[in-house]
Amino acid sequence: MSEAFPRHVLCVLGSGLALSEMERIAAGFGGFVLDREYSEAAPDPRMPEAFEASVAAASFDEADWAAVESHDTVGYLLSAPMMRELAFDTSRRLLAVTAALLRSGVAAVKNESNGLAHGRDRWLALADRAADATDEGLAGALVAAWVKRPIYDGHVLYSCGMHLLGAPEVEIEVGEERPTEEGLLELVAHMDTLAIYLLTDPRAEEIEDGAGFRMGEDAPRWLLRTGTSARYDEDDLFFNPYGYVRLTHTE
């Protein structure tokens, strides 16, 4: 296993909110610092394009896009490099930080460590959901907040962001024909089921390559394939040192 430790790099756009205030709010949750080298009290004209590339359109509304366009400050909040056993709780706390920032005047937020942005309402809904949840409910909220999915490589649907929760990425083999919209929703539900299993079930730590997996008692049987991914270099923020777990069809 790689010795790389994942970390969150959160891009925070302010509108009338000083960098020092961003830092103060984040510090109140423990373990998060402002990157003084890259943060700047000035607008960055690249941000609309950067947010668009982070699938912001999935949950952005007109007000969100207007907020990005009118930002006057760009802050980068960092978590410490996360040991595996601390990643889940760190990500839970950072979601609460994100909500606190948005409620204090932050315009928009995206995560550089998974290439994912949500609109204001979506961030706040996920934070509220996580605050009231435990076990599988909490895992589901954090997957929705921090894991980009599905990404299609022409053969496999895969995720990016499970490393921020201390778990392997989840994948599902679909072949060369792109799934229909209805089929895609079902496949993403399978990916989420596997992701929550990896985060909440102690048996997930002992997955063997080729083991069987069912979504429910009467559901079809899948095979689990495990491995390391070569999609990203070790120094890439997207890199997952825990590899992947892939759902494949039984013979």
Results as ranks from 00 to 15, higher is better:
A4W: 12
L164G: 00
S70K: 14
E23C: 14
S229C: 11
G115Q: 06
H249D: 11
L101H: 01
E217D: 10
Y242D: 05
H249S: 14
A130P: 01
D132G: 10
M215P: 05
E69F: 08
A107R: 03
L124Y: 03
P45L: 10
F213T: 02
M215F: 13
E136M: 11
L184K: 00
E234P: 05
S54A: 13
E251F: 15
T228V: 10
S2K: 04
T180F: 13
V33H: 15
M1I: 10
S20I: 11
G216K: 07
P45Y: 14
D64K: 13
S229N: 06
L185Y: 06
G183W: 05
T193M: 10
Y158M: 07
F51N: 07
V12S: 08
S15M: 13
H163K: 08
T193A: 11
A42Y: 09
N111T: 09
S91M: 05
W146G: 03
L164N: 00
M1E: 11
L198N: 02
I207V: 10
T134F: 13
I25K: 14
A189L: 06
V68S: 04
P150W: 00
G28T: 04
P179W: 06
V188G: 00
A67E: 00
I172W: 05
Y232N: 09
E171A: 09
T134Q: 06
L95S: 05
D121N: 09
A125Y: 11
Y244M: 12
F239V: 01
S91Q: 04
A195T: 01
E205M: 13
C160Y: 09
G119N: 03
R203K: 12
E21W: 14
Y158D: 01
L101W: 03
W65Q: 01
H71I: 00
G28E: 02
A167P: 00
T180C: 10
V170N: 06
E52I: 06
T248D: 08
A195S: 09
G166Y: 00
I25G: 14
M83E: 11
S54V: 07
M22K: 02
A125V: 04
C160P: 01
G14C: 08
D35F: 14
G166W: 01
A57N: 02
D135Y: 07
V147K: 11
R122F: 09
E40Q: 14
F51G: 03
W146S: 05
A117R: 04
A141D: 05
H163L: 09
R120M: 09
G227D: 04
A56H: 08
W222K: 01
Y197V: 08
L157C: 05
G227I: 04
S15H: 14
D128I: 11
I196A: 08
A108L: 07
R46Y: 11
I25Q: 15
R203Q: 12
C11S: 09
A189G: 04
W65F: 06
E171M: 15
H163Y: 06
P241A: 12
F238Y: 12
T180K: 12
H8G: 02
D89F: 12
F32N: 03
H118E: 02
D235N: 14
G166I: 01
R122K: 09
L17F: 07
D209E: 13
A117H: 05
R24I: 02
R84I: 06
R120K: 10
V55W: 08
Y244F: 15
P179H: 04
E136V: 05
F238A: 03
